[in-house]
C-alpha cells in the first residue's frame, strides 16, 4: 500500500497534513501522537510582529461545526523560528509555515525571513482569513491583489515552494485560483473558513465578540469538496483540499475530486489524537476500497452515467 504523495517538489509520507490555526505550533499535539507520522505539519499563521488577537468570546459551537474569530493571535515569526521550529521534527517531516501580513510588501518581508530557514519546507500564504480587519481577506477576494501577494512572496521565498490558501467567500473561486497560478504559485490550498455568525436570542447579542467569524468543521465539507473539484479542473498546479475532513473516507473523497493532499483542521479539536488515528487507518481504508496508490484515484471521480463498480470495470478491461 503506497500512501506517499509528491507535492510540488515535496515528498510526503502520506497526504494528511495539519491545517493552519488548528494545530498550534505542532508541539501541542506531540503528547497525543508522533508528529513524524504526519504528511506535513502546517503551523499557526505567523506575522512579522506578535499579535494578541481578538477579544473573547472567540469561538462558538454550531451544528456539526464551529465559528471562530481568533484574529491570528501568534508569537511572531522570529519567536517561532527561535523557540518552536528547533523542537519540531523538520528533518523528518516537512514543516509548512503559514504567513499573514497586512500589505504586499510585508508579505515579501515575511517570506524572506521564513524562506531562508532550513527547517521550513514550504510557505503557505494566508490571503483568506475573515477575522482580521486589514489584509487577509481583501487579498483573497480580488484576483489582482491575490496575484500581487503571490508574486511578492515568490520573489522572496528563495527555493521554497509557495502554497496560496484560498477563501471560499468569493463569487467564483476558480477566478482567484487561476490568477494565483498565473502569478507563480506552486500549489493551492482550499478552503479557508466560510463567513458566518451566531446570535444569542436571550441576551440579543452576537455569540462572538467580533460579531462575525469563520465557519469550519464537518458542516462545510460539501462546500469544500465542490470548490476543490471545480478548482482542480481549471488549474495545473497541485491542490491541497481542506474543509471539514474528519475521517479516512473524507480524505479519499478529496483525492477523488482531484486533490493531491489534504489538511485536517477543526477535527483536531474533536480529539487531539484524531489526525494520528486517521493516518494509521488510511492504508486499511485504501485496501477496503480497492486503492493501490493515491495517484491512481486522484481526480478519478466517475461523473458519467455509467456507474460501474470499480472491480467490475477492472474485469472488463482484462
Amino acid at each position: 500500500m503506497d500512501t506517499r504523495v509528491e507535492l510540488g517538489g515535496l515528498i510526503l509520507k502520506n497526504p494528511v497534513m495539519s491545517a493552519s490555526g488548528t494545530f498550534g505550533y505542532g508541539l501541542e499535539f506531540s503528547l497525543y501522537g508522533d508528529l513524524q507520522e504526519l504528511g506535513a505539519i502546517v503551523v499557526k499563521g505567523l506575522s512579522l510582529k506578535p499579535r494578541a488577537g481578538n477579544p473573547v468570546p472567540r469561538i462558538v459551537e454550531t451544528p456539526c461545526g464551529m465559528l471562530n474569530a481568533i484574529g491570528l493571535q501568534n508569537i511572531g515569526a522570529e519567536r517561532f523560528l527561535r523557540d518552536k521550529l528547533p523542537l519540531l521534527p523538520w528533518d523528518r517531516t516537512p514543516v509548512v509555515v503559514n504567513l499573514y501580513a497586512q500589505s504586499v510588501q510585508e508579505f515579501g518581508q515575511l517570506a524572506g525571513l521564513l524562506g531562508r530557514e532550513p527547517g521550513v519546507a514550504a510557505l503557505e500564504v494566508n490571503i483568506s482569513c475573515p477575522n482580521v480587519r486589514h489584509g487577509g481577506f481583501q487579498f483573497g477576494q480580488d484576483p489582482a491583489a491575490a496575484a500581487a501577494v503571490t508574486r511578492e512572496v515568490k520573489k522572496n521565498s528563495g527555493s521554497r515552494p509557495v502554497i496560496v490558501k484560498l477563501s471560499p467567500n468569493v463569487t467564483d473561486v476558480r477566478t482567484i485560483a487561476k490568477a494565483v497560478q498565473d502569478a507563480g504559485a506552486d500549489m493551492l490550498s482550499l478552503i479557508n473558513t466560510l463567513g458566518g455568525m451566531a446570535v444569542d436570542v436571550h441576551s440579543r447579542k452576537p455569540r462572538l465578540a467580533g460579531i462575525t467569524g469563520g465557519l469550519s468543521g464537518p458542516a462545510i465539507k460539501p462546500v469544500a469538496l465542490k470548490m476543490v473539484y471545480q478548482v482542480c479542473r481549471v488549474v495545473d498546479i497541485p491542490v491541497i483540499g481542506l474543509g471539514g475532513i474528519c475521517t479516512v473516507d473524507d480524505v479519499l473523497e478529496f483525492i477523488l475530486v482531484g486533490a493531491h493532499a489534504v489538511q485536517v483542521g477543526t477535527a483536531n479539536f474533536m480529539r487531539p489524537d484524531l489526525i494520528f488515528d486517521l493516518i494509521r487507518d488510511l492504508p486499511e481504508a485504501m485496501s477496503r476500497t480497492g486503492i493501490v496508490s493515491l495517484d491512481e484515484i486522484r481526480g478519478a471521480l466517475e461523473t458519467s452515467s455509467d456507474r460501474m463498480d470499480p472491480l467490475e470495470k477492472m474485469q472488463n478491461i482484462r
Partner: peptide, 28 residues
C-alpha cells in the same frame, strides 16, 4: 472557567488576559 474547544492549547478560544497584556490559553 472559559469556553474551550481543544483543551490542548491549539484553538486559542479559551484565552484570558494577563496584566502584561498577554492572552494566555486557560487550558495549558
Amino acid at each position: 472557567e472559559t469556553r474551550m474547544a481543544c483543551g490542548v492549547g491549539a484553538c486559542l478560544g479559551c484565552v484570558i488576559k494577563t496584566r502584561n497584556g498577554e492572552m494566555l490559553q486557560t487550558c495549558v
